[in-house]
Design a binder for these strands. Sequence first.
DNA 1: CCAGTTCGTTAGTCATAGCTTACGGTAAGT
DNA 2: ACTTACCGTAAGCTATGACTAACGAACTGG
Lengths: 102, 102
Amino acid sequence: MTNELALAALGDPTRRTIFECLSDRPSAVGELAQLLPVSRPAVSQHLKVLKDAGLVVDQKVGNRRIYRLDPNGIGDLRDYLERFWGCALTTFKMKSEQKGQE
Amino acid sequence: MTNELALAALGDPTRRTIFECLSDRPSAVGELAQLLPVSRPAVSQHLKVLKDAGLVVDQKVGNRRIYRLDPNGIGDLRDYLERFWGCALTTFKMKSEQKGQE
DNA sequence: CCAGTTCGTTAGTCATAGCTTACGGTAAGT
DNA sequence: ACTTACCGTAAGCTATGACTAACGAACTGG
């Protein structure tokens, strides 16, 4: 699933930084590359991974290409993670309540 | 931060499978290895990563070593992720409401 | 039409992650 | 005490991922 791609994508620290930059404001590739300690092609490749993971969308405007976060993909990942550890957290909650009750 | 370790840890599919197995029930290393297509030492190494990330705790019982999910670490990661994309999702919500209003 | 941007893609290098095999250490059973 | 089971760690190999440099495409402005 694309959620697994998203999780793998966010495993890389550089991509997390890119994600946070885009969280601040939509940006072009060159702008992101200036903020990061890597070259512009590297940023391009990271953006491709984020795009395939459904976390980011791009839009051509004039000469440049603006990237922004994709709320749909992010929402999907959020829901996926809720189900992912929802069970573990609820059983813990049950135990803590059970313990406070005795 | 350990939250970044946790994200990197969950980036690997084998570790996600281990996580899900432990979500079902606490298990020893050998039990997990039987369910997975990798060797027992590989499982041990994955469990170490998950443990360093604060997602898992272990407990010696007799000859074996039982691993279980750590609700504290999982809760921390959950909160971290909420802050992580909280901004992106709220700005989207504002836009959708703004769009539905016009 | 011709430079100058901005960007994606490719080829190639280098480091790291994941895996297995082998070994040592501890606990339980006979 | 000896064997068996269960586990962590180290060493070594291999595949994969991240990066850079180089190239070509699309758009802009003189």
